[in-house]
Amino acid sequence: GAAIFAREYHPIVNVAFALIGVAWAAINVNSYPMIVAMSSGRDVGKFTGTYYTFSMAAQILTPVLSGFLLEKVSYNTLFPYALFFSLMAFLTMTQVRHGDVKPQKKESILENFDVDD
Results as ranks from 00 to 15, higher is better:
Ala3Thr: 12
Met88Asn: 04
Pro11Leu: 09
Ile35Gln: 10
Ile20Phe: 15
Ala18Val: 12
Asn30Lys: 03
Met56Trp: 12
Tyr52Pro: 02
Ser31His: 11
Lys46Tyr: 13
Ala6Met: 12
Lys106Glu: 14
Gly99His: 04
Ala3Asn: 08
Val44His: 03
Ser39His: 03
Gln95Ser: 09
Leu87Ala: 07
Pro33Leu: 04
Arg97Asp: 14
Phe5Ala: 14
Asp100Gln: 15
Met93Glu: 05
Ser39Trp: 01
Glu111Pro: 00
Gly1Ser: 05
Val36Cys: 06
Ile109Glu: 08
Ala58Phe: 01
Lys46Pro: 00
Val115Cys: 13
Ser39Glu: 02
Leu65Asp: 01
Tyr81Asn: 02
Thr53Tyr: 13
Thr94Trp: 07
Lys102Tyr: 06
Leu61Asp: 03
Val29Ile: 15
Ala26Ser: 13
Ser40Leu: 07
Ile60Trp: 11
Ala82Tyr: 00
Gln104Asn: 04
Gln95Lys: 10
Glu71Ala: 08
Thr92Gln: 03
Glu71Met: 03
Ser86Phe: 02
Ile27Asp: 12
Lys46Arg: 13
Thr62Ala: 15
Ile20Val: 10
Phe17Ile: 09
Tyr52Leu: 13
Lys46Ser: 10
Phe17Thr: 06
Lys102Asn: 10
Leu83Phe: 12
Asp117Ala: 07
Ala3Cys: 11
Ser31Lys: 08
Gly41Asp: 15
Trp24Ala: 08
Ile27Ala: 14
Ser108Phe: 04
Leu83Glu: 00
Ala2Tyr: 09
Pro33Met: 05
Leu110Gln: 14
Ala26Thr: 10
His98Leu: 04
Met56Pro: 00
Glu111Ile: 04
Leu70Trp: 03
Ser40Asp: 11
Gly21Leu: 04
Leu78Gln: 06
Ala18Ile: 12
Ile12Ser: 11
Tyr51Leu: 10
Val96Tyr: 08
Thr92Cys: 09
Val15Arg: 09
Leu70Ala: 10
Met38Cys: 07
Gly1Thr: 05
Tyr75Leu: 10
Ser40Ile: 02
Val115Arg: 15
Phe5Gln: 07
Leu69Cys: 07
Glu111Asp: 15
Val115Ser: 14
Arg97Thr: 14
Gly41His: 08
